[in-house]
Amino acid sequence: MTDQDSCSHDCGSCGSACPSNQGPKSFLKPANKHSKIKKVIGVISGKGGVGKSLVTSLLAVAMQERGRQAAILDADITGPSIPHIFGVEKNAEVLHQEIIPALTDNKIKVISINLLLADHTDPVVWRGPMIGGAVEQFWTDVCWGDVDYMFVDMPPGTGDVAQTVFQSLPLDGIIVVTSPQDLVGMIVEKAVKMAEMVHIPVLGLVENMAYFTCPSCGEKHAIFGESQVKALSEAYNIPLIAQIPINPALAQACDQGKITDIEGDWLAELVAGLEKI
Rank of each mutant, 00 (worst) to 15 (best):
227 S>N: 11
33 K>E: 15
241 I>H: 08
98 E>R: 09
162 A>W: 01
168 S>M: 10
16 S>C: 07
3 D>R: 13
34 H>K: 13
200 I>R: 01
116 L>W: 05
203 L>V: 07
69 Q>P: 01
96 H>S: 13
190 K>T: 11
189 E>S: 09
205 L>N: 02
269 E>Q: 12
24 P>H: 11
9 H>D: 06
70 A>Y: 01
14 C>I: 15
19 P>G: 07
164 T>F: 02
252 Q>Y: 02
102 A>Y: 00
37 I>Q: 03
167 Q>L: 14
24 P>W: 09
213 T>N: 03
34 H>T: 11
48 G>W: 09
267 L>P: 04
84 H>C: 03
86 F>K: 02
170 P>Q: 09
185 G>S: 10
246 I>A: 03
262 I>S: 06
198 V>L: 10
9 H>Y: 13
110 V>H: 01
144 W>T: 05
17 A>T: 12
150 M>P: 07
45 S>W: 09
126 W>R: 03
163 Q>F: 13
166 F>S: 11
210 A>R: 04
9 H>M: 04
5 D>A: 15
205 L>P: 02
77 I>P: 01
167 Q>A: 11
205 L>K: 06
244 I>N: 06
71 A>M: 00
233 S>A: 15
68 R>P: 00
168 S>V: 05
233 S>V: 10
40 V>N: 05
155 P>S: 12
42 G>A: 15
130 M>Q: 13
160 D>K: 05
79 G>W: 07
266 W>C: 02
137 Q>Y: 05
194 M>P: 02
190 K>M: 12
53 S>M: 07
201 P>W: 09
82 I>R: 00
231 A>K: 14
251 A>L: 12
155 P>H: 06
171 L>F: 05
229 V>I: 15
